[in-house]
Design a protein around this nucleic acid. Structure first.
Lengths: 150, 150
DNA sequence: AAATAATAGTTAATAATGTAAACTATTTTC
DNA sequence: GAAAATAGTTTACATTATTAACTATTATTT
């Protein structure tokens, strides 16, 4: 019997969210073990989506993280040859992040692996339930990010 | 428009689970900022549930983590005066983890804060939806932990 | 136009977390 | 009694989060 189902009030929901998320990411890593990067897949997708116009600040916003972490991510992806920093012409403080051909080659695999991991995670749920889960997760996320006052 | 709702196949579900879990834990920390510990609340609940019989190994299993991490957790809670290690009489390799009066005093607040954080996270969901979400999260967790072969 | 403030990104420092290997003490197995 | 297994600890290393101080550039103010 899963203790998760009962007495939820005694169990921090966030603990299970985090743990489940970690299981997911470890699954994703396994599916992408053929690549020579082992993290920041999602950053790569966001960067590609930005079509060479995305700045580090914007990446930070999209990831919900800070600029220091983004420096690390960008350093990592640059060092592995997946992206480049391009000094912006309009504003020389900014860098535009552009994917390399290597990234272009890897992205289909990454997308496929993400779809596969999602599939595995959500398998045995009906199409409606999947949609419902995603919807509710979005609500929970925004509930938690709303005003901290009680 | 929330990008989470569409094109989920391009977005790693685990990323949102982890992020939502972190928001939750930060909320929980805020609600418990009056305590002199700032983590391992859930471990404390598990230890109290064990009624002085829980070993470090068993705590590791309950948390889904390894024994090295548990040493750190136990060291922390011991150093803060919330628990003690009691050498087991039956098996001198083992320690039984027992809560102190200080823990007993803190636990109601912790439980209340967890219930409150759960409430905040799940607010604006109906009772049925809440149950559904918890149920599906359990399914997803077990889906991901099942056989890694594809 | 010069001084000031704000912004984009980097660097450095500290702490928390995850993982693996080597270790001690005790118990179990053969 | 020797060998193997178990419970827990220590050490080491890499990742991740957070904060502050820093450089270079752009925007604002007077």
């Amino acid at each position: 019997m899963d203790t998760l189902l009962e007495n939820i009030d005694n169990q921090p929901l966030g603990f299970f969210l985090t743990r489940t998320g970690k299981s997911y990411l470890s699954e994703l890593n396994q599916q992408l073990s053929n690549l020579d990067i082992e993290r920041n897949y999602y950053s790569l997708i966001i960067i590609e989506r930005g079509q060479g116009q995305l700045t580090q600040n914007e990446l930070a916003a999209a990831l919900g993280t800070d600029k220091v972490s983004v420096v690390r991510i960008v350093d990592y992806l640059v060092s592995k040859g997946y992206i480049r920093r391009l000094r912006s012409k309009e504003d020389k403080r900014k860098f535009c992040l552009v994917g390399t051909p290597k990234a272009l080659l890897a992205l289909p695999h990454i997308r496929k692996a993400i779809a596969g991991a999602n599939e595995k995670a959500l398998s045995s749920l009906s199409a409606d339930e999947k949609k419902e889960f995603i919807r509710m997760l979005g609500i929970i996320k925004s509930n938690l990010n709303s005003s901290k006052t009680f």
